[in-house]
């Protein structure tokens, strides 16, 4: 453990903090993205035709990475909003603020993205309150309009603007399902865990571990995914596998790394955790 510790401290810190205005954030370096189907082509076509895009798939399957990659590829600013249950339409569109007795209007992230003509990525859209899904409706059909009711304005979106939402059908209850009237406004790209070979390639690339170790991790991932719907809400994500690989790369033993990055985060169910750790022990000596 001590040896590991020393090795970790020797790590060079490559990135320093940097800040941009929300609508001026560009992805500057090409993010690693391994295309599985023809999602890049479809996304580009959707963008060219002014169609909004919905990304559907389990957690850690590459939705966010894909959006980053597309932002880089299309050279568009990227505004990301993580939706939550208290998110109201004002939070998206904007509101008046009080400043020293004066009022000042402040654009919300959606309005900024529309004005800047970039990508607005609403992550986990179903988590937001119902009224938010409705305000995006005029923006998602042929009108491409954003009404700013409070100011009595309507903003016409530029061609460059594209709305992207993500949606994880797995753990959403019926209650939080997307309405047909909303979902049918989008071009939908399905994400799933990639095939064995591809996933191993991704794990190896992202973490820097050898291909054979990445393959073992992917095998573990597959076995754990067998337990989905048998008490696990979601299978082990590609992201979790990458985390485990990174820990292994830093000198943690595979068994401990998998416990920390896979068995522990995925469930609080003690027995389930034990079963997963048993699979870990079967795969890694």
């Amino acid at each position: 453990m001590l040896a590991v510790h020393r090795e970790l401290r020797a790590v060079e810190y490559r990135k320093e903090a940097a800040s941009w205005k929300m609508e001026e954030y560009f992805v500057r370096e090409e993010p690693y993205y391994r295309e599985v189907g023809n999602e890049v082509g479809i996304f580009e076509a959707a963008h060219a035709n002014g169609l909004p895009v919905m990304l559907k798939g389990p957690t850690g399957s590459g939705k966010t990475r894909f959006v980053q990659y597309m932002a880089w590829r299309l050279k568009l600013p990227l505004v990301t909003v993580a939706c939550h249950e208290d998110l109201t339409s004002s939070d998206l569109i904007g509101r008046y603020l009080l400043e020293g007795g004066e009022t000042r209007w402040s654009d919300g992230p959606l309005t900024r993205a529309v004005k800047a003509g970039g990508i607005c990525y609403l992550d986990e859209i179903v988590e937001a309150r119902k009224d938010t899904t409705v305000v995006i409706h005029p923006l998602t059909d042929h009108r491409r309009l954003l009404p700013v009711e409070k100011r009595g304005e309507v903003i016409e979106a530029p061609d460059r603007f594209i709305l992207v939402i993500s949606y994880n059908p797995g753990y959403q209850s019926i209650l939080k399902n997307l309405k047909q009237s909303t979902r049918q406004r989008f071009v939908c790209l399905e994400f799933d865990y990639p095939p064995r070979e591809v996933e191993a390639e991704i794990v190896a690339h992202e973490s820097g571990v050898r291909k054979d170790l990445a393959e073992e991790l992917v095998k573990l991932g597959e076995k754990v995914r067998n337990l989905k719907a048998k008490g696990l809400e979601e299978g082990a994500s590609t992201r979790a596998l990458i985390y485990a690989a990174k820990l292994i790369k830093s000198g943690i033993t595979p068994r401990s790394a998998c416990q920390a990055a896979i068995s522990n985060p995925i469930t609080d169910d003690v027995e389930m955790g034990r079963a997963i750790q048993s699979v870990v022990e079967a795969v890694f000596p």
Partner: peptide
């Protein structure tokens, strides 16, 4: 039993 069941299910699919 439950751990073993899950383990068996993970292994066998």
């Amino acid at each position: 039993a439950r751990v073993l069941k899950l383990y068996g299910e993970a292994i066998s699919g």
